[in-house]
Design a protein around this nucleic acid. Structure first.
Lengths: 126, 126
DNA sequence: TGCATATTCAACCATATGGTTGAGCTTGCA
DNA sequence: TGCAAGCTCAACCATATGGTTGAATATGCA
């Protein structure tokens, strides 16, 4: 599903990482959806239980869950008549990588000791 | 920045950066804006130069730059009749911290990031 | 002074987004 | 068998978003 981190040499096929990021970031842009993700961090939940704390219709929550599913941020699995929602944190990785790339250019606040450690353990990190 | 009391349904999380996250994530959700950020990673640029590679009016780019500024992702400074745009990567920190809460991600390898960025930038130019 | 450059503003348009309601489908169970 | 529970669908609505164009506002310079 999520191919954002695909680094295979199939680049000419034009796997669209850009669209994945569109979908993931816009999924994260809504506070209700971020709250849902936080809730699912605790435990898997049924749709009805996800909806319970919100002052919003079940249908609206159902839509939010579809958006999160489409972004690959959660997985939904139906068991009996209950649809369970499970966090899929891996989908955040591509977005996280993208963002941290900008962090590389932040001024580095290493003091001499940390600089020493960084140099000392450089091989371990490679 | 906005600091208010948290009101997420899932409980108390102390300081609420919810609206900040809304603004930052939705700023990042647009491929044109991400491409602009990538360009500014190279160097500071004037508005006209930012607009140059895009097949879109200058006014549209100007709007995108306002959105990035409002999100704190860039800073704009007018010198003479030229308005310079400068990356402000610190603004990504709160969003990054939020996302880190969802899982341990691999340490970022810069070369992987640059390939990722190059691919995405290529998509946007196409 | 007067014109070109750099950028934003204002009005407008099409589409996307986030919500509602009511009906409909599937499943569990008394 | 029949009803309640769990969830989605479809239609609708208001507002947000991302783009356009033409006019307006600064600023630099010959």
């Amino acid at each position: 599903m999520c191919v954002a981190l695909d680094r295979t040499p199939s680049g000419s096929y034009g796997i669209d990482m850009s669209t994945d990021l569109d979908i993931v970031f816009s999924a994260l842009a809504d506070p209700t959806r971020r709250a849902i993700l936080s809730m699912l961090l605790e435990d898997d939940m049924a749709v009805t239980d996800v909806a319970e704390p919100f002052e919003m219709s079940l249908a609206a929550i159902s839509k939010h869950l579809s958006i999160l599913t489409r972004a690959g941020l959660i997985q939904q699995e139906k068991r009996g008549r209950v649809k369970w929602c499970k966090l899929q944190p891996d989908a955040l990785r591509s977005a996280s990588v993208w963002m941290q790339g900008f962090g590389q250019f932040e001024p580095v606040h290493l003091d001499a000791f940390e600089r020493f450690l960084a140099a000392e353990f450089h091989d371990d990190q490679a």
